[in-house]
Design a binder for these strands. Structure first.
Lengths: 202, 202
DNA sequence: GTCTATACTGAGATAGAC
DNA sequence: GTCTATCTCAGTATAGAC
């Protein structure tokens, strides 16, 4: 294993365990058995190290997402696929990545919950998200683009919790058979819900 | 203004603007015009400073939440109030707090999105959350406690986004007339959605 | 009881020798 | 490519002046 790979492996392990901010470069290099300065030589900064870590893992997930979405669209063309198929195409690859690389999904959950998505992760997923937003817009004609954006934001916020944090006392490994149907029912209904007028007081 | 109040005011201003981790104690004391050590004299640590900041503001919000919930329950007793009334009782006070103290709501949103809720904020809201969970459980007989917990977690994750982060390009002040109906429709439908069986592949 | 000055530890980053 | 030494800036702790 090269120095770079040793650093990446140790970082993934430690960040999955303790989170990004709580993991110092000195812990990482101690675990990896390399020198502190080598991190900055190979990556430039702690943030860029994180960036490369994500880059290496997010690619396959995003490719599978797009493949599933395109398959769904082919099946129903020229009609848009039903919402549930789109949601499934987006969510399932994350849970399947869990099988291949449990550490990575834990890292992603950590980063979500540490609020690091906007500055670090967005660029690895923005293209895919835009593609899915377009598909959902076709599938949900009662939503304007603005309304859809709001709901997508709500969904991402919600997902960021579920990715690593289980409701109290019910800690369980991320498991597609368990979690996916929950998400599907919850967000399916939520996205289909009507757009209420601005006046409240039901 | 006492030293303590000067620190609290400066901290609230800076944290609302730049977030908790990005705001250093040295910035705060510079803005407040006090000495560095006075922070630890009055509060003990940066985290305890944050804690007191929240304590001072969360009280009124939580009291209003409970008052609205009890009023709703009185109106429909012995039947549980409709879900929308419960959600409204929980959400409205936050948006009304926005009128009284815009900085505070921005701070809360920041903390949510920085992932600091579990360690700092939970204790200021846990009692109220439990009370509301119990009310929702009565109102949603098709949900087990476990299923409800999951959905409440999803809602909190979603809210943490909406509290300060607007969907791209659509930045707007937090406005009850605008946001509340959106949340009500989205979560109303989401909570009422059926519990799907564990086997997926719709 | 309050506040000031100053020092300590550990973080990320960097320059320069090898 | 790698390593040593060092820099700056965090949060924190304490001794001592008022």
């Amino acid at each position: 294993m090269t120095t770079k790979e040793k650093i990446l492996a140790a970082a993934e392990r430690l960040i999955a365990e303790h989170g990004y901010t709580a993991t110092s470069l000195r812990q990482i290099i101690g675990d990896a058995g390399v020198n502190l300065a080598s991190v900055h030589y190979h990556f430039g900064s702690k943030e860029e190290l994180l960036d490369e870590m994500i880059s290496r893992k997010a690619g396959p997930v995003n490719r599978q997402r797009l493949a599933l979405l395109e398959e769904a669209e082919r099946l129903t063309a020229p009609e848009p696929p039903p919402l549930e198929r789109i949601l499934d195409a987006f969510l399932r690859p994350v849970f399947e990545a869990q099988q291949r690389s449990p550490e990575f999904v834990r890292v992603m959950g950590r980063l979500h919950s540490e609020g690091l998505m906007p500055m670090v992760l967005a660029r690895h997923f923005q293209d895919v998200v835009s593609r899915f937003e377009a598909a959902m817009l076709r599938s949900l004609p009662h939503l304007s683009q603005t309304e859809l954006r709001w709901r997508v934001e709500l969904m991402f916020g919600a997902l960021s919790r579920v990715m690593w944090h289980r409701p109290d006392g019910l800690a369980a490994p991320l498991d597609a058979v368990d979690v996916l149907p929950r998400l599907m029912s919850f967000f399916g209904a939520a996205f289909r819900s009507p757009v209420l007028p601005k006046e409240e007081k039901s």
